[in-house]
Protein backbone atom coordinates (compact mmCIF):
# COMPACT_ATOMS: atom_id res chain seq x y z
CA UNK A 1 0.00 0.00 0.00
CA UNK A 2 1.44 3.33 -1.11
CA UNK A 3 0.56 5.81 1.64
CA UNK A 4 2.54 8.66 0.18
CA UNK A 5 0.66 8.28 -3.08
CA UNK A 6 -2.67 8.44 -1.23
CA UNK A 7 -1.53 11.55 0.62
CA UNK A 8 -0.07 13.46 -2.30
CA UNK A 9 -3.05 12.63 -4.51
CA UNK A 10 -5.45 13.74 -1.80
CA UNK A 11 -3.59 16.97 -1.18
CA UNK A 12 -3.29 17.75 -4.87
CA UNK A 13 -7.02 17.37 -5.32
CA UNK A 14 -7.92 19.15 -2.08
CA UNK A 15 -6.49 22.38 -3.41
CA UNK A 16 -6.71 21.53 -7.10
CA UNK A 17 -8.74 22.79 -10.00
CA UNK A 18 -11.93 20.94 -9.12
CA UNK A 19 -11.79 22.32 -5.59
CA UNK A 20 -11.44 25.83 -7.00
CA UNK A 21 -14.40 25.41 -9.36
CA UNK A 22 -16.64 24.11 -6.60
CA UNK A 23 -15.35 26.72 -4.21
CA UNK A 24 -16.36 29.52 -6.58
CA UNK A 25 -19.80 27.99 -7.07
CA UNK A 26 -20.14 27.72 -3.29
CA UNK A 27 -19.05 31.34 -2.71
CA UNK A 28 -21.87 32.33 -5.05
CA UNK A 29 -24.30 30.15 -3.12
CA UNK A 30 -23.06 31.64 0.11
CA UNK A 31 -24.09 35.09 -1.09
CA UNK A 32 -27.46 33.80 -2.28
CA UNK A 33 -28.37 31.19 0.28
CA UNK A 34 -25.99 31.77 3.18
CA UNK A 35 -26.51 35.48 3.57
CA UNK A 36 -29.70 36.31 1.70
CA UNK A 37 -31.64 33.08 2.17
CA UNK A 38 -32.33 32.53 -1.53
CA UNK A 39 -32.74 28.87 -2.38
CA UNK A 40 -30.94 28.71 -5.71
CA UNK A 41 -30.92 25.04 -6.69
CA UNK A 42 -29.69 25.83 -10.16
CA UNK A 43 -26.22 27.19 -9.50
CA UNK A 44 -24.88 24.78 -12.11
CA UNK A 45 -26.69 26.78 -14.79
CA UNK A 46 -24.51 29.79 -13.97
CA UNK A 47 -21.41 27.61 -14.06
CA UNK A 48 -22.51 26.23 -17.41
CA UNK A 49 -23.04 29.78 -18.67
CA UNK A 50 -19.42 30.59 -17.84
CA UNK A 51 -18.09 27.44 -19.47
CA UNK A 52 -20.19 27.72 -22.58
CA UNK A 53 -19.39 31.39 -22.99
CA UNK A 54 -15.73 30.38 -23.24
CA UNK A 55 -16.49 27.43 -25.51
CA UNK A 56 -18.72 29.32 -27.90
CA UNK A 57 -16.82 32.59 -28.11
CA UNK A 58 -13.37 31.03 -28.40
CA UNK A 59 -14.11 27.90 -30.39
CA UNK A 60 -17.27 28.53 -32.38
CA UNK A 61 -16.65 32.20 -33.11
CA UNK A 62 -12.89 32.16 -32.85
CA UNK A 63 -12.75 35.31 -30.70
CA UNK A 64 -10.64 36.12 -27.68
CA UNK A 65 -10.94 34.47 -24.29
CA UNK A 66 -11.10 37.86 -22.60
CA UNK A 67 -14.21 38.70 -24.56
CA UNK A 68 -15.61 35.31 -23.59
CA UNK A 69 -15.18 36.16 -19.91
CA UNK A 70 -17.15 39.37 -20.36
CA UNK A 71 -19.84 37.46 -22.23
CA UNK A 72 -19.94 34.83 -19.47
CA UNK A 73 -20.54 37.51 -16.86
CA UNK A 74 -23.25 39.16 -18.94
CA UNK A 75 -25.02 35.86 -19.60
CA UNK A 76 -24.93 35.03 -15.88
CA UNK A 77 -26.48 38.41 -15.11
CA UNK A 78 -29.18 37.85 -17.70
CA UNK A 79 -29.95 34.38 -16.32
CA UNK A 80 -30.23 35.86 -12.82
CA UNK A 81 -32.72 38.42 -14.11
CA UNK A 82 -34.73 35.80 -15.99
CA UNK A 83 -34.90 33.57 -12.93
CA UNK A 84 -35.26 36.31 -10.37
CA UNK A 85 -37.75 38.77 -11.77
CA UNK A 86 -40.73 36.42 -11.92
CA UNK A 87 -39.96 34.52 -8.71
CA UNK A 88 -38.34 36.79 -6.17
CA UNK A 89 -41.59 38.54 -5.35
CA UNK A 90 -43.15 35.19 -4.55
CA UNK A 91 -42.53 32.85 -1.65
CA UNK A 92 -39.03 31.43 -1.29
CA UNK A 93 -39.88 27.98 -2.66
CA UNK A 94 -40.73 29.32 -6.10
CA UNK A 95 -37.15 30.29 -6.76
CA UNK A 96 -36.02 26.81 -5.71
CA UNK A 97 -38.40 25.10 -8.11
CA UNK A 98 -37.69 27.40 -11.02
CA UNK A 99 -33.92 27.29 -10.65
CA UNK A 100 -33.64 23.51 -10.51
CA UNK A 101 -35.91 23.16 -13.54
CA UNK A 102 -34.01 25.87 -15.38
CA UNK A 103 -30.64 24.25 -14.78
CA UNK A 104 -31.83 21.00 -16.34
CA UNK A 105 -33.41 22.95 -19.16
CA UNK A 106 -30.05 24.58 -19.83
CA UNK A 107 -28.23 21.25 -19.88
CA UNK A 108 -30.74 19.59 -22.18
CA UNK A 109 -30.74 22.59 -24.49
CA UNK A 110 -26.99 22.91 -24.83
CA UNK A 111 -26.57 19.20 -25.54
CA UNK A 112 -29.44 19.07 -28.02
CA UNK A 113 -28.80 18.25 -31.64
CA UNK A 114 -30.60 21.42 -32.75
CA UNK A 115 -27.78 23.69 -31.64
CA UNK A 116 -24.93 21.31 -32.44
CA UNK A 117 -23.21 23.78 -34.78
CA UNK A 118 -22.86 26.41 -32.10
CA UNK A 119 -22.86 24.49 -28.82
CA UNK A 120 -21.40 21.18 -29.90
CA UNK A 121 -24.29 18.91 -28.93
CA UNK A 122 -23.67 15.98 -26.59
CA UNK A 123 -19.93 15.98 -27.35
CA UNK A 124 -19.61 19.55 -26.15
CA UNK A 125 -16.87 21.87 -27.28
CA UNK A 126 -13.28 20.67 -27.29
CA UNK A 127 -10.22 22.53 -28.42
CA UNK A 128 -7.76 25.20 -27.43
CA UNK A 129 -10.28 27.02 -25.28
CA UNK A 130 -7.88 28.49 -22.76
CA UNK A 131 -4.98 29.29 -25.09
CA UNK A 132 -5.11 33.04 -24.46
CA UNK A 133 -4.82 32.31 -20.78
CA UNK A 134 -2.15 29.65 -20.98
CA UNK A 135 -0.07 31.97 -23.16
CA UNK A 136 0.26 34.24 -20.13
CA UNK A 137 1.82 31.45 -18.05
CA UNK A 138 4.89 32.97 -16.35
CA UNK A 139 6.26 29.64 -15.10
CA UNK A 140 9.58 28.56 -16.67
CA UNK A 141 9.06 26.48 -19.81
CA UNK A 142 11.12 23.63 -18.38
CA UNK A 143 9.03 23.50 -15.22
CA UNK A 144 8.56 19.90 -14.20
CA UNK A 145 6.47 19.62 -11.07
CA UNK A 146 6.25 20.88 -7.51
CA UNK A 147 7.71 18.60 -4.82
CA UNK A 148 4.47 17.12 -3.46
CA UNK A 149 1.71 18.53 -5.62
CA UNK A 150 1.60 16.79 -8.94
CA UNK A 151 0.34 19.49 -11.29
CA UNK A 152 1.56 20.12 -14.78
CA UNK A 153 2.94 23.55 -15.63
CA UNK A 154 -0.37 24.44 -17.24
CA UNK A 155 -2.49 23.23 -14.33
CA UNK A 156 -0.33 25.00 -11.77
CA UNK A 157 -0.93 28.31 -13.51
CA UNK A 158 -4.69 27.67 -13.44
CA UNK A 159 -4.47 26.75 -9.76
CA UNK A 160 -2.58 29.93 -8.90
CA UNK A 161 -4.95 32.22 -10.75
CA UNK A 162 -7.93 30.20 -9.52
CA UNK A 163 -7.04 30.72 -5.88
CA UNK A 164 -6.41 34.40 -6.56
CA UNK A 165 -9.96 34.57 -7.94
CA UNK A 166 -11.25 32.77 -4.86
CA UNK A 167 -9.40 35.25 -2.65
CA UNK A 168 -10.77 38.24 -4.55
CA UNK A 169 -14.35 37.04 -4.41
CA UNK A 170 -13.97 36.16 -0.74
CA UNK A 171 -12.70 39.68 -0.11
CA UNK A 172 -15.64 41.09 -2.05
CA UNK A 173 -18.11 39.03 -0.03
CA UNK A 174 -16.40 40.02 3.20
CA UNK A 175 -16.62 43.71 2.31
CA UNK A 176 -20.24 43.38 1.32
CA UNK A 177 -21.56 41.44 4.26
CA UNK A 178 -20.03 43.75 6.83
CA UNK A 179 -21.56 46.78 5.12
CA UNK A 180 -25.08 48.19 5.46
CA UNK A 181 -25.84 46.26 2.26
CA UNK A 182 -24.99 43.04 4.07
CA UNK A 183 -27.16 44.04 6.99
CA UNK A 184 -30.13 44.32 4.67
CA UNK A 185 -29.63 40.95 3.03
CA UNK A 186 -29.18 39.25 6.40
CA UNK A 187 -32.41 40.91 7.46
CA UNK A 188 -34.12 39.59 4.35
CA UNK A 189 -32.91 36.08 5.11
CA UNK A 190 -34.71 36.22 8.41
CA UNK A 191 -37.85 38.23 7.77
CA UNK A 192 -38.56 40.07 4.56
CA UNK A 193 -41.59 41.91 5.88
CA UNK A 194 -39.57 43.52 8.67
CA UNK A 195 -37.05 44.82 6.17
CA UNK A 196 -39.77 46.07 3.81
CA UNK A 197 -41.43 47.87 6.70
CA UNK A 198 -38.24 49.88 7.14
CA UNK A 199 -38.36 51.16 3.59
CA UNK A 200 -35.91 48.82 1.88
CA UNK A 201 -36.58 47.55 -1.62
CA UNK A 202 -36.24 43.89 -0.73
CA UNK A 203 -36.86 42.68 -4.27
CA UNK A 204 -33.93 44.71 -5.60
CA UNK A 205 -31.60 43.35 -2.93
CA UNK A 206 -32.61 39.77 -3.61
CA UNK A 207 -32.02 40.33 -7.30
CA UNK A 208 -28.59 41.82 -6.59
CA UNK A 209 -27.65 38.83 -4.43
CA UNK A 210 -28.84 36.40 -7.09
CA UNK A 211 -26.87 38.24 -9.77
CA UNK A 212 -23.67 38.46 -7.75
CA UNK A 213 -23.84 34.80 -6.72
CA UNK A 214 -24.51 33.84 -10.33
CA UNK A 215 -21.54 35.78 -11.66
CA UNK A 216 -19.22 34.19 -9.10
CA UNK A 217 -20.58 30.79 -10.15
CA UNK A 218 -19.95 31.66 -13.80
CA UNK A 219 -16.29 32.27 -12.96
CA UNK A 220 -16.21 28.68 -11.73
CA UNK A 221 -17.37 27.65 -15.18
CA UNK A 222 -14.81 29.87 -16.89
CA UNK A 223 -11.99 28.33 -14.84
CA UNK A 224 -13.33 24.91 -15.73
CA UNK A 225 -13.35 25.52 -19.48
CA UNK A 226 -9.93 27.13 -19.43
CA UNK A 227 -8.37 24.38 -17.33
CA UNK A 228 -9.92 21.40 -19.12
CA UNK A 229 -9.92 23.02 -22.57
CA UNK A 230 -13.24 21.33 -23.02
CA UNK A 231 -16.88 21.94 -22.20
CA UNK A 232 -19.05 18.88 -21.62
CA UNK A 233 -22.82 19.33 -21.26
CA UNK A 234 -23.26 16.35 -18.98
CA UNK A 235 -20.91 17.69 -16.35
CA UNK A 236 -23.56 20.30 -15.60
CA UNK A 237 -26.01 18.01 -13.86
CA UNK A 238 -28.01 18.99 -10.78
CA UNK A 239 -25.54 17.03 -8.62
CA UNK A 240 -23.05 19.81 -9.17
CA UNK A 241 -25.32 22.24 -7.35
CA UNK A 242 -25.89 19.78 -4.52
CA UNK A 243 -22.16 19.21 -4.09
CA UNK A 244 -21.74 22.96 -3.92
CA UNK A 245 -24.39 23.06 -1.19
CA UNK A 246 -22.60 20.23 0.62
CA UNK A 247 -19.43 22.31 0.53
CA UNK A 248 -21.25 25.34 1.84
CA UNK A 249 -22.79 23.39 4.71
CA UNK A 250 -19.50 21.65 5.53
CA UNK A 251 -17.70 24.95 5.86
CA UNK A 252 -20.62 26.78 7.43
CA UNK A 253 -23.16 28.89 5.58
CA UNK A 254 -22.98 32.65 6.06
CA UNK A 255 -19.29 32.43 6.99
CA UNK A 256 -16.91 34.29 4.73
CA UNK A 257 -14.37 31.43 4.72
CA UNK A 258 -17.01 28.70 4.77
CA UNK A 259 -16.80 27.86 1.05
CA UNK A 260 -12.98 27.65 1.11
CA UNK A 261 -12.84 25.36 4.11
CA UNK A 262 -15.78 23.40 2.77
CA UNK A 263 -14.28 22.90 -0.68
CA UNK A 264 -10.96 21.72 0.68
CA UNK A 265 -12.65 19.37 3.14
CA UNK A 266 -14.99 18.06 0.48
CA UNK A 267 -12.12 17.11 -1.79
CA UNK A 268 -10.04 15.70 1.05
CA UNK A 269 -12.92 13.42 1.95
CA UNK A 270 -13.79 12.57 -1.64
CA UNK A 271 -10.27 12.16 -2.98
CA UNK A 272 -8.88 10.73 0.25
CA UNK A 273 -11.43 7.96 0.56
CA UNK A 274 -11.20 7.29 -3.17
CA UNK A 275 -7.44 6.95 -3.23
CA UNK A 276 -7.37 5.04 0.02
CA UNK A 277 -10.02 2.54 -1.02
CA UNK A 278 -8.40 2.12 -4.43
CA UNK A 279 -5.05 1.35 -2.84
CA UNK A 280 -6.59 -0.87 -0.19
CA UNK A 281 -8.38 -2.97 -2.78
CA UNK A 282 -5.22 -3.28 -4.84
CA UNK A 283 -3.29 -4.35 -1.78
CA UNK A 284 -5.94 -6.96 -1.06
CA UNK A 285 -6.99 -5.45 2.28
CA UNK A 286 -10.55 -5.17 1.14
CA UNK A 287 -11.98 -8.02 -0.87
CA UNK A 288 -15.71 -7.28 -0.79
CA UNK A 289 -15.34 -4.25 -3.09
CA UNK A 290 -14.35 -3.95 -6.72
CA UNK A 291 -12.22 -0.99 -7.88
CA UNK A 292 -15.27 0.14 -9.85
CA UNK A 293 -17.29 0.53 -6.63
CA UNK A 294 -14.94 3.12 -5.21
CA UNK A 295 -16.49 6.07 -7.00
CA UNK A 296 -19.88 5.38 -5.49
CA UNK A 297 -18.66 4.43 -2.02
CA UNK A 298 -17.00 7.83 -1.74
CA UNK A 299 -20.36 9.52 -2.06
CA UNK A 300 -21.96 7.17 0.44
CA UNK A 301 -19.26 8.18 2.91
CA UNK A 302 -19.68 11.84 2.02
CA UNK A 303 -23.43 11.62 2.55
CA UNK A 304 -23.01 9.88 5.91
CA UNK A 305 -20.50 12.52 6.92
CA UNK A 306 -22.91 15.28 5.98
CA UNK A 307 -25.71 13.68 8.00
CA UNK A 308 -23.40 13.36 11.00
CA UNK A 309 -22.41 17.00 10.60
CA UNK A 310 -26.02 18.16 10.47
CA UNK A 311 -26.79 16.19 13.62
CA UNK A 312 -23.78 17.12 15.70
CA UNK A 313 -22.71 20.44 14.29
CA UNK A 314 -25.51 21.88 12.18
CA UNK A 315 -23.87 25.27 11.88
CA UNK A 316 -20.98 23.75 9.89
CA UNK A 317 -17.34 23.76 10.87
CA UNK A 318 -17.14 27.53 11.22
CA UNK A 319 -20.73 28.44 11.97
CA UNK A 320 -21.86 30.21 15.10
CA UNK A 321 -24.09 27.92 17.09
CA UNK A 322 -25.73 30.83 18.89
CA UNK A 323 -27.03 32.24 15.65
CA UNK A 324 -28.69 28.95 14.83
CA UNK A 325 -30.21 28.53 18.26
CA UNK A 326 -31.96 31.87 18.03
CA UNK A 327 -34.71 30.67 15.80
CA UNK A 328 -37.51 31.85 18.04
CA UNK A 329 -39.82 34.23 16.24
Amino acid sequence: MDWSFVLTQTLTQAIGIQAIIYCLAAIGLNVQFGYTGLLNFGQVAFVAAGSYAVGVIVLTFDLSLWLAIVVGVVVALVIALILGIPTLRLRADYLAIVTIAFSELVRLTVRSIAFKDVLGGAQGLNGKLGQDFHDTNPLPADFQSLPVLSWTRQDLWVVIVGWILVALFTLLVWLLVRSPWGRIVRGIREDEAAVVSLGKNVFAYKLQALMLGGVIGAFGGIVWAVAKQSVQPDTFRPEFTFFAYTILLLGGAARVFGPIVGAILFWIILAGTGEFLGQAIQAGWIDFLQPTDVGNIRFVLMGSGLIALMVFRPQGIFGDRRELALDAK
Binding site: R183, G187, D191, S197, L198, G199, L326, D327, A328, K329
Partner: peptide, 18 residues
Protein backbone atom coordinates in the same frame (compact mmCIF):
# COMPACT_ATOMS: atom_id res chain seq x y z
CA UNK B 1 -42.25 53.45 4.53
CA UNK B 2 -39.84 55.76 2.73
CA UNK B 3 -42.32 58.58 2.42
CA UNK B 4 -42.99 58.41 6.13
CA UNK B 5 -45.60 55.77 6.86
CA UNK B 6 -43.86 53.25 9.09
CA UNK B 7 -45.61 50.41 10.88
CA UNK B 8 -44.88 47.74 13.46
CA UNK B 9 -46.41 44.30 13.60
CA UNK B 10 -48.78 42.62 15.99
CA UNK B 11 -46.51 39.57 15.93
CA UNK B 12 -43.23 41.28 16.61
CA UNK B 13 -40.68 41.19 13.84
CA UNK B 14 -37.43 41.82 15.64
CA UNK B 15 -34.69 40.22 13.55
CA UNK B 16 -33.55 37.71 16.13
CA UNK B 17 -30.28 36.65 14.48
CA UNK B 18 -29.04 40.19 14.39
Amino acid sequence: ARIGMVRTFQLTKALSRM
